[in-house]
Design a protein around this nucleic acid. Sequence first.
DNA 1: CGCTGTGTTGAATGCCGTCAACGTCGGTGG
DNA 2: CCACCGACGTTGACGGCATTCAACACAGCG
Lengths: 235, 235
Amino acid sequence: MPLDRSLISGLPAFAGLDGKDLDAILSRARSSRFPKDSEVFGQEEEATSFFLLLSGHIRVVRTSPEGHQVIARYITEGELFGIAIAMGRTTYPASAVAAVDCVVLAWPNSAWAELQSRFPAFGASAYRTIGSRLQETQAQVMEMSTQQVEQRIAHALLRIVSQSGRKTPEGIEIDFPITRQDIAEMTGTTLHTVSRLLSAWEDQGIVRSGRQKVTVTDPHALMLVSEHRRKGPAA
Amino acid sequence: MPLDRSLISGLPAFAGLDGKDLDAILSRARSSRFPKDSEVFGQEEEATSFFLLLSGHIRVVRTSPEGHQVIARYITEGELFGIAIAMGRTTYPASAVAAVDCVVLAWPNSAWAELQSRFPAFGASAYRTIGSRLQETQAQVMEMSTQQVEQRIAHALLRIVSQSGRKTPEGIEIDFPITRQDIAEMTGTTLHTVSRLLSAWEDQGIVRSGRQKVTVTDPHALMLVSEHRRKGPAA
DNA sequence: CGCTGTGTTGAATGCCGTCAACGTCGGTGG
DNA sequence: CCACCGACGTTGACGGCATTCAACACAGCG
């Protein structure tokens, strides 16, 4: 059964394309399901496909030669990922792990050139994606250079929540399981420090958190925390 | 007088193009000179052109709202920079400052679409450039997450030296002026710490350094320093 | 000859990583 | 149903690395 065009219509990656174009694009794709904690692709693996996340959440993880892990980003529904080919790479620079059960569209790399030339808007969108990830990553470097752990964690939570938040009566909840360790690996710190800070924030009524779950109950207060720098400007 | 094709033949950005193509590309470019410490473009400025560095060295600097500065990278001869348009941006995400007197080719953004469609290899090369910068930046995040200041500074010096080193009788010298503050802004630390470490390394015969000048006399030893991690793997 | 930018070095503070121990939740198998 | 076990989370104590604060040295320049 062919994939229905409604799956991808309305996504920024395919903006401005008509129904026929969408069908053409989908005809080259294959959809598959990845259960929680399974790997969509692994770091250093030969890059044979590029992907789009239809539903779920995916964790992009880089592992250093010494075994240290860093979470580069979370992919949310509708985003392209694993687009090594667009960067001229032959291997994936990181692993992609399903944070929850996921549904993914995959195109073989051989489809890239064709899609890009037939639908320039699609190529441009992919390059915009890469461009904005470059900026985000550079912003993260700035953050790590200039801000304290507390601000970095606050900022990370705000980013996740704004991107993958689900409203609940208590506040905005991160809608996939996330551990202290995960947050530590996003911010370059330790699970101990994360745990301490979350506990402190819980006392102040800024968050409510439990096992693999974080709910921001007072986003404004958290924003203030993220902006409260103790380190003065270098001026 | 038209620009001579020998200026850009042999650069990776224009690999595989013949003389006629190079002339066509050059006909859209304008060359200009930027004296030391002058700005090629500024952060947040409207992006009207993209650039290629013909000679000199350029410092790419991001400034935070609070005035904190971070050096994102140094551009060396033959590299594209300021290619905001390739990332779908309308403003430059950072400032570009001449570290020494520089000669630069500039193309108006309007030339981008044409060059890209007429010379797909050129477009691909630009996207590869962005892709590799994304990887480098992500590698930097990993470094800042997992390594001590000493290793980061050693690593940064090795990178600069391998990219912009000039052989001297004493060792390999960074061939543009660089201050302790610059190195600190590349590695997310302070000029004090950089100064202390350079002094220590000088005592150990690994580097020789003076005013705005650093020479690596024992690259191998510096490599050992950059790999000596005191923090164990997260395993 | 003072002034500014650069570099050095000592001392003290403090953030946060490390080590350690314990508590709790959820799943699993008997 | 209950005991067990591993993953996840919490909290205290300690210490080290790097920042911060401070003072001085030196070069180049108008």
